[in-house]
């Protein structure tokens, strides 16, 4: 996939971070969630991020997803320094370039599954008819065609997770960021989701998945392990194609 932004840096680096830190001042102390992350992810890589709870995986994903700003360090997305982007550009990136699957779903409670999946398309300016069609298609992809009119509280945890995956996929983003996308799914649905991810990867997408589960991680080509806010290991996996 290509970005329409300036081709100044002819590179296939989708993500590059340098000395990325993120700390949260908590009263008198400061929580250092990330302590300097240097990470490069290239186009069409399939990366799993692992690490114990509290090691900073979600924090890193939020930074990569342009939802949060680092305390220090730099981040280039598609060769562009993110720190220099305007609010509107960031909104557009979140809308078009990145699909984000949240660990906690983050669905709108009052809206139906279909409406939730439509949401990014609304902000993308897609006309209503096409919007509905594409949202329905995305829900079918995650096997929820029969639950479109249900609200999140009428769905199981796994179903909610799939709605949020559908929402991340509906704009056909080049970069898919998934924070424990299978954390709430049974092994069968997990497997289906992972097949879906494989397919997206085969179609040329770049995928970053946070997971606790070894077998999920093993479907990726590269496993990055975080420990206490730092990368403790970064190794290619069996199916990896080294650039």
């Amino acid at each position: 996939m290509t970005s329409s932004r300036e081709p100044a840096v002819a590179t296939d680096e989708v993500i590059r971070t340098a000395g990325l830190t993120r700390s949260f001042p908590m009263g008198s102390t400061t929580v250092h969630a990330l302590r300097g992350i240097d990470l490069v992810i290239r186009r069409n890589e399939y990366v799993a991020i692992m690490g114990p709870s509290g090691s900073g995986k979600s924090t890193l994903m939020n930074l990569i997803g342009c939802l949060d700003t680092p305390t220090s360090g730099e981040y280039w997305l598609d060769g562009q320094p993110v720190a220099q982007l305007q609010e509107q550009d960031l909104a557009q990136i979140r809308n078009r370039e990145i699909g984000f699957v949240f660990q906690t779903f983050n669905l709108l409670p009052r809206a139906s599954a279909l409406r939730n999946v439509e949401l990014p398309l609304i902000y993308g300016g897609v006309p209503p008819a096409e919007r509905k069609h594409r949202a329905a298609e995305a829900l079918e992809q995650v096997d929820l065609a029969d639950r479109m009119d249900h609200r999140p509280n009428e769905l199981s945890g796994g179903q909610r997770q799939r709605v949020s995956i559908a929402r991340a996929l509906v704009t056909r983003p080049a970069l898919l960021l998934a924070d424990e996308p299978t954390g709430n799914l049974d092994s069968k649905t997990s497997a289906e989701i992972m097949v879906l991810f494989d397919r997206l990867h085969a179609a040329g997408n770049t995928i970053v998945v946070v997971t606790h589960e070894r077998d999920i991680a093993e479907r990726s080509h590269r496993i990055v392990t975080l420990h206490d806010g730092m990368v403790s290991s970064d190794e290619p996996h069996r199916r990896s194609r080294q650039p």
Partner: peptide
Amino acid sequence: TREIGVRKAVGARQGD
């Protein structure tokens, strides 16, 4: 607040 967060996360601009 949460709803606003969700909207911004999927691409709502401040103007929206």
